[in-house]
Design a protein around this nucleic acid. Structure first.
Length: 419
RNA sequence: GGAGGGGUGGCUGAGUGGUUGAAAGCGUCUGUCUUGAAAACAGGAGUAUCCGCAAGGGUACCGCAGGUUCGAAUCCUGUCCCCUCCGCCA
């Protein structure tokens, strides 16, 4: 959520930022209008309440019954207050509704553009294999009996899959290895959060109200399945004031992610590049505002190191204003080369959301005991996303003799060197 | 699922329908003392919002939402959450 006070102060700045994203800026005027009405209701209401309090207090102090004129006067005040309060809460709801649907302002470093065609490739690392004998994972997986697409469809339908034997173990080894690197080397605290969350938590992260079509939900309890651990981790300090000297808070979680993928119907239909349920290791940080850009760099590095150690070729891409996510102010993607599928696969997306999410879920911190509260900046990034990195290893590991080589770092975790 | 108990400030915990935004203790911050620290002593400190350049003032908040009343942390209703016991169960 944006800061409504700043919008009023400097509408121009917000108009530019939002239109760079392709957002309809006319809502800003509506907001400014509603806010002045809101203030008017508050002013009037507070005055009436103050009057009422004064009279009641006097009656109490003098230890007597109220006079008839006092009673009728206060009853009149209370009547007026009722309608004022009704108007106030109506306007508050309207303001909130609009505010919740306004995306974050892109950072000034973000290249301006309508869509992903304006994204900028920052660099490409590692050797990209392209030998003839390399097969796509949807062929080599079933051949080795480690991936069963039919069984997935049979159990749950399209975009579900089953890993078997060494395939399943490779998957588990990847998760464990990544979690160990994050916690032992990069200093993240491991979190195992709920996968089902309240509506408020989804609003806090920015997934609701706008993106409900992509989310699974249980009707009876109104609980929602997380599309990423970012949602749960962001909710960790919801409504709380983080005490002084606690930042930065660095968390890492490994959870399943559930996505309906309605918007990409028909895309990436082969193999397991885009599925309804997948595991992902997620990095998440709460940091003080002036440090957040430095932490963004750190998190990119963290994800990049994993790709390198997995012996994969990777590409760092800066997303343009037209392609960054709703809650993000600046985002970098990391893609790895999959020589069998013959494409780059997005395995990480790393964003600085600034104070957008902490405003939404009212997470604050204090610099010192006596100082005022501040909204921390939040950052999130995959480190890394699972079936895709599994795919990349499977496709990149293929050798001429038909075996698949496991990256050195994983061998202690898999217990085997080849598939 | 059944029975009972409870939600008060960072924590523990008082609270009679009327100067209670709320005792006390712990913790915390500032100062005095000390070479420094501890201890002791003195003092300060909730959150949000509105008006104001500021000083300052108003309003709201005792899980949440309503209601009764001139006046509600305190009474009533609903709701959520937590704890204990029983039942069921991975």
């Amino acid at each position: 959520m944006l800061d409504i006070k700043k919008i009023i102060e400097n509408k121009e700045f917000f108009s530019i930022g939002l239109s760079n994203r392709g957002y309809d800026v006319s809502n800003l005027d509506t907001i400014i209008n509603f806010d002045s009405k809101r203030r008017e209701y508050i002013k009037k209401g507070d005055k009436k309440r103050s009057e009422r309090n004064e009279i009641s207090k006097k009656i109490g102090l003098e230890k007597r019954k109220p006079t008839e004129s006092e009673t009728t006067y206060i009853k009149k005040l209370s009547e007026d207050l009722k309608s004022l309060d009704k108007n106030l809460s109506k306007i508050n709801i309207k303001i909130r509704e609009i505010m919740l649907e306004i995306p974050n302002i892109p950072n000034e470093q973000v290249p301006i553009g309508k869509d992903e065609s304006s994204n900028v490739v920052k660099d490409t690392k590692g050797y990209q294999r392209n030998e003839e004998f390399i097969k796509p994972h949807w062929d080599i997986g079933p051949e080795k009996d480690i991936l069963d697409l039919e069984a997935g469809a049979n159990i749950s339908g399209a975009r579900f899959f089953v890993l078997k034997g060494k395939g399943a173990k490779l998957h588990r080894a990847l998760m464990n290895w990544m979690m160990d690197v994050h916690t032992n080397e990069f200093g993240y605290t491991e979190i195992d959060p709920p996968y089902l969350v309240k509506k408020e938590t989804m609003i806090g992260s920015g997934n609701l109200p706008k993106f409900k079509d992509n989310l699974y939900r249980d009707d009876e309890t109104d609980l929602w399945l997380i599309p990423t651990a970012e949602v749960s981790l962001n909710g960790l300090h919801q409504g709380k004031i983080i005490p002084p000297n606690s930042l930065p808070l660095s968390y890492v979680a490994m959870t399943p992610s559930f996505r309906k993928e309605h918007a990409s119907a028909g895309r990436d239909i082969r193999g397991i590049k885009r599925v309804h349920q997948f595991y992902k290791v997620e990095m998440f940080r709460f940091v003080s505002p002036e440090t957040s850009m430095d932490y963004l760099e750190k998190m990119i590095k963290n994800a990049r190191v994993l790709c390198e150690r997995l012996e994969l070729s990777s590409k760092l891409i800066q997303l343009s204003t037209g392609d960054i996510g709703f809650q993000s102010a600046i985002t970098y993607d990391i893609e790895v080369w999959a020589p069998g599928s013959k494409e780059w696969l997005e395995v990480s997306s790393i964003s600085n959301c600034m104070d957008f999410q902490s405003r939404r879920n009212n997470t604050r911190f204090k610099e010192k005991q006596a100082s005022s509260t501040i909204f921390p900046h939040t950052l999130n990034g995959s480190g890394l996303a699972l079936p895709r990195i599994w795919v990349a290893i499977l496709e990149n590991g293929q050798q001429e003799d038909g075996t698949i080589k496991i990256p050195e770092v994983l061998i202690p975790y898999t217990g085997f060197k080849t598939i």
